[in-house]
Design a protein around this nucleic acid. Sequence first.
DNA 1: GTGAAAGCGCTAACAT
DNA 2: ATGTTAGCGCTTTCAC
Lengths: 347, 347
Amino acid sequence: MVTLKDIADEAGVSIATVSNVINGNLSKVSNDNAKRIRAIIENRHYVPNSSARTLAVKSSHIIAGILMGAQGANMLKDPYCAEFFGELVGAVQDRGYYFMVRYVTSYDEVIKSLRSWNVDGAVFIGTSEVYSRKIQEEIHIPLIFTDSYTTQQNINNVGIDDFKGGVLAAEYFLKMGHRNLSFVGYTYPLMEKSVVPERLGGFLSVFKSHNIEMSDKQFFYVPESAPDDCLNNIASQLMEDNGGITGFFVSADKLAFALIRTLSNNGIKVPQDISVIGFDDLSITSDFMPGLTTIRQNISRKVQIVADLLFRQIEGDNVPPVNTMLDVELIERGSVKFLSKKRKENT
Amino acid sequence: MVTLKDIADEAGVSIATVSNVINGNLSKVSNDNAKRIRAIIENRHYVPNSSARTLAVKSSHIIAGILMGAQGANMLKDPYCAEFFGELVGAVQDRGYYFMVRYVTSYDEVIKSLRSWNVDGAVFIGTSEVYSRKIQEEIHIPLIFTDSYTTQQNINNVGIDDFKGGVLAAEYFLKMGHRNLSFVGYTYPLMEKSVVPERLGGFLSVFKSHNIEMSDKQFFYVPESAPDDCLNNIASQLMEDNGGITGFFVSADKLAFALIRTLSNNGIKVPQDISVIGFDDLSITSDFMPGLTTIRQNISRKVQIVADLLFRQIEGDNVPPVNTMLDVELIERGSVKFLSKKRKENT
DNA sequence: GTGAAAGCGCTAACAT
DNA sequence: ATGTTAGCGCTTTCAC
């Protein structure tokens, strides 16, 4: 293994000088030496030892990507996580940092991984409010939480405007002449306030302001682990007595797809028989569902915001914590049927 | 930050003793001390410093996951990579190791990342033959390549039986009465021998042994970055003069889906008008294409084999390199139509 | 069973 | 502009 000392010896200088050229402290090195040393470094394929550097300066240039979830789960399999982290890896490397993925099931594991490696910053997916507060108290490096509806102050959070997503869906349904709709969402047992209720909240707010009532019977919650039974129930109920429902707002594209499939198996066609609006518009889901009208969150942009904030806080001095809410937009494709104008103007 | 020294001081022992209880060298520590020290460690929330440890022993307990590809690409977005790495992260952590993801575009970057962190082992996706040989020569830690049809000896590789996958598809088509088929695959420009040609090779071998000819015109290569134009051409050609083709073997499920969609846009239905067999059966694609008959590769098992091999080589002494080829199976669903027995027995 | 001390490769403060 | 040196936190050898 080639070390600083080897380079210094070969160049006939001290290790401090070599260290300075490596770290770009050119003011302290003569041009002549700098050039010669760089050549030797190149020649000998010298690679600085990150552990030694970390030990000396207490900063590793490692960014941790923390996924909180159930023990043994393949969390990257989730297309949102994969796309988000996949993008983040690039952003982190572009800035000369390294990316460590970490699955954790408890608060304790987070603290340990972060401390153990002198991690410079961390990005979280799926962290509950209690945890994020505790982590923030223990660890004093830049921490970015995502999609976390924490009431906690002084915490970095980057989320999307889930409420507006619901509003956009509702308004579009109204515009297309729909007035009797239903909601299908994944259950999120752990969190009080979270993305799903927000999406629903936005959706309902529009109908409320139009004095259109929705009954509890029109909300369906589906377990993420085993959605099929629930979806089948929805289909059966629809066939028995649809109560005049003309469309579904679904909290995730993947779930929308499962719903559409289940309906289709029961002879109910989208959008002919019933309309559907999804949520997310990940690149993979749009590959598979080119016809789904949905609420898009722009993941590239989300990662860009996360990375900017993270590195501003790491490199800059006292950038205050911010809670960013990114915009969403409705992507109109073909899964919502236009109902008669008459019906629409009945409003 | 709490260090070994702090613990030692509080316990009234030397740092060597504390180090020994942490590393489980119980033979060198009295039960009494061990117990007391453990309590203090717990109390003070002591977390060992991985960089210091790495510096001292030259082993970081870091496993690198290397993705070779184009600059700026989101490589984890690919569902295969996401599922594979997602599973690998779990396997690595289960053994007490850390996982670092690294996008690389050149041989040089691989060497640097691996050396810089004293990485204990690395797993590669998408590495060309030239690179894998050079890396292997430079870096003497356990290296596992995947799906690499290298002719190189003494290299760890874990792949699947792509050839057999092609054979299974062909045999199934024959069994279902199909005799005039076409192949659609992604182009893999970089590699001479690789998964796609193998799959095609297996497919063709069956027809050859049945004395059924296939012309070059029946092979279509589609660029992964922009498949649509190509697929449209295939559809047009099919409508103009299908040459009696009754089915497609497609080198990846995702591509199969795109093909089916394109055909459907042109009024050609699967399996009524034409049959399709895909390849991969990732969990996400089966979510989206529940009806596709396909060749399954078992990713969980692949990761298990990779991890076993990796850690046997890391922890064991001289485990020789192996080239493992995992089995594949045909998953029969609904995308291949059964043609008349008459036609079949015409063979 | 326990401790002292050298050393891993690097940075940074301080001398020169 | 360059060199000397004291750590950073840990493991490990060797003496006790």
